[in-house]
C-alpha cells in the first residue's frame, strides 16, 4: 500500500491515535537504549568527550531520509503528498531565534523535551525539573504572546525544502547530506581524541 497511509485515508482518526501511541513506544524504547536518558551523555557531545548524540542523530536522520526516497522509488510512498500537506513550514527568523534559545536550554538544562521524558522514567531528578521548567517556559511564551506574535510567524517561506533552496535535484541533496554525515562521523572520532576540556583524554577514548 502506498503511504502515507493516514493521509490517504487508509485508517481513521481513532486508529491514528493508537498508531501514534505505538510509534511513541518504539521511540521511547530506542531513546533509552541509545543512552539518551542521562543528561551527561546528552551534553558530552558539546565537550567533545563522547560524540554519541551526533552519531545517533545523523544516522537516524539519514536512515529515514534515504528510506523515504527508496520507498518513493518503489512506489510505496507518495513524496508529493508529504511535500504538499505535511512538510514542516519554514518560519526562518523565529526558527533561528527559537533554535538559539533551545540550544541554550539544551546545554544549560541538559535535556531536550523527548529525552527528558525518558530521563524521568529512568529516575533522573534533573529530568523532572527540566520538564517542569518547560511548563513554565510555555506559560511565559503564552503570557507574552501579544508582544511577539508577529515575530513568531515572520519569515514564512512555506513548505520549503533544502533542494529547492540550492536548486538541485532531491536525490543530489540527499547524497550531499549522507556525505556530510559520513564526514561528521569521521570528525567525531578525531574530536574525541582532541577532547579540549579534558587533559587526560575523553571517556570515549579511554574506553577503547
Amino acid at each position: 500500500m502506498t503511504g502515507p497511509l493516514y493521509l490517504f485515508g487508509t485508517f481513521g482518526y481513532g486508529t491514528s491515535l493508537i498508531v501514534s501511541l505505538i510509534t511513541g513506544f518504539f521511540f521511547g524504547f530506542v531513546l533509552e537504549r541509545a543512552g539518551f536518558a542521562d543528561s551527561r551523555t546528552l551534553t558530552n557531545i558539546f565537550y567533545f568527550r563522547d560524540m554519541r548524540v551526533l552519531r545517533v542523530m545523523f544516522s537516524a536522520l539519514t536512515t529515514a531520509m534515504v528510506g523515504l526516497i527508496v520507498l518513493s522509488w518503489l512506489g510505496l510512498f507518495d513524496y508529493s503528498v508529504l511535500l504538499q500537506y505535511a512538510l514542516l513550514e519554514t518560519f526562518l527568523w523565529p526558527q533561528l531565534v527559537g533554535g538559539i534559545l533551545f540550544g541554550l536550554g539544551f546545554i544549560i538544562g541538559g535535556y531536550c523535551p523527548g529525552t527528558s521524558m525518558v530521563g524521568i522514567v529512568s529516575g533522573r531528578l534533573d529530568a523532572i525539573v527540566f520538564l517542569g521548567g518547560m511548563f513554565v517556559g510555555i506559560y511565559v511564551f503564552a503570557a507574552g504572546f501579544p508582544i511577539w506574535s508577529t515575530f513568531a510567524s515572520s519569515g514564512n517561506l512555506g513548505r520549503l525544502t533544502l533542494w529547492q533552496v540550492f536548486d538541485i535535484p532531491m536525490s543530489v541533496m540527499a547524497a550531499l547530506i549522507v556525505a556530510m554525515a559520513l564526514a561528521a562521523f569521521w570528525l567525531a572520532g578525531l574530536a574525541e581524541k582532541w577532547a579540549p576540556y579534558d587533559k587526560k583524554g575523553s571517556p570515549a577514548q579511554r574506553r577503547s
Binding site: 527559537g98 538544562g109 518547560m134 510555555i138 515575530f151
Partner: peptide, 16 residues
C-alpha cells in the same frame, strides 16, 4: 536544569 527547561520551553514555541 530548571533554567534550561524554561529556555527550552520558550524556544520550542518560537521554533514550532
Amino acid at each position: 536544569a530548571f533554567v534550561g527547561g524554561v529556555l527550552g520551553g520558550v524556544g520550542t514555541r518560537f521554533a514550532l
